[in-house]
């Protein structure tokens, strides 16, 4: 990634979280990975001033307590948080979910591949995206 801001991962599945962590390691992406397991916790984290604003949020849709779409709705309604690019990383390939996510202003939507190699590929794309695309930078 171009900047050194942390990457925020919202994922309840520990294996999936491990996959992301492993992929980041394999791709030698040095940004810190912050892992939250649901929307509520993530919001709390984001709203706390002591925490650094992440450069990108990777979010699963299917989560306990507050699912991804609900989280998206809240974050996009929040003036201070809505600028943060969010990329959906989910098992759902439902069109409805895709539509809904983009309506809520996500920066990207990725279906988790079952194959790790493919997964690696996707993370590489996310990295390229975040590197090549100008993102709002509020320090």
């Amino acid at each position: 990634m171009r900047n050194s801001k942390p990457i925020l991962l919202v994922e309840d599945d520990i294996v999936d979280a491990m996959t992301v962590e492993r992929a980041l390691g394999d791709l030698e992406i040095s940004n810190q990975l912050t892992h939250k397991i649901n929307g509520e916790e993530t919001l709390e984290y984001l709203r706390s001033d002591s925490n650094e604003t992440p450069c990108v949020i990777l979010i699963d849709l299917n989560m306990p307590k507050m699912n991804g779409l609900e989280f998206l709705r809240l974050i996009k309604a929040d003036e201070t948080l809505k600028e943060i690019p969010v990329i959906v990383l989910t098992t759902s390939s439902e069109e409805q979910d895709v539509d809904e996510s983009f309506k809520l202003g996500v920066a990207g939507y990725m279906v988790k591949p079952i194959d790790y190699e493919e997964f690696l590929e996707k993370i590489r794309v996310i990295d390229s995206y975040c590197t090549l695309i100008e993102l709002p930078n509020r320090g």
Binding site: D13, V15, D16, M18, T19, R22, N62, T91, S92, E94, K112, I114, D115, Y116, F119
Partner: peptide, 21 residues
Amino acid sequence: AYIVSHDLKAPLRGIKSLTQW
């Protein structure tokens, strides 16, 4: 069917990833 399938897919992917690793 959707939820079950969905929920089945997650651990399956985990199994697969872990196996590959």
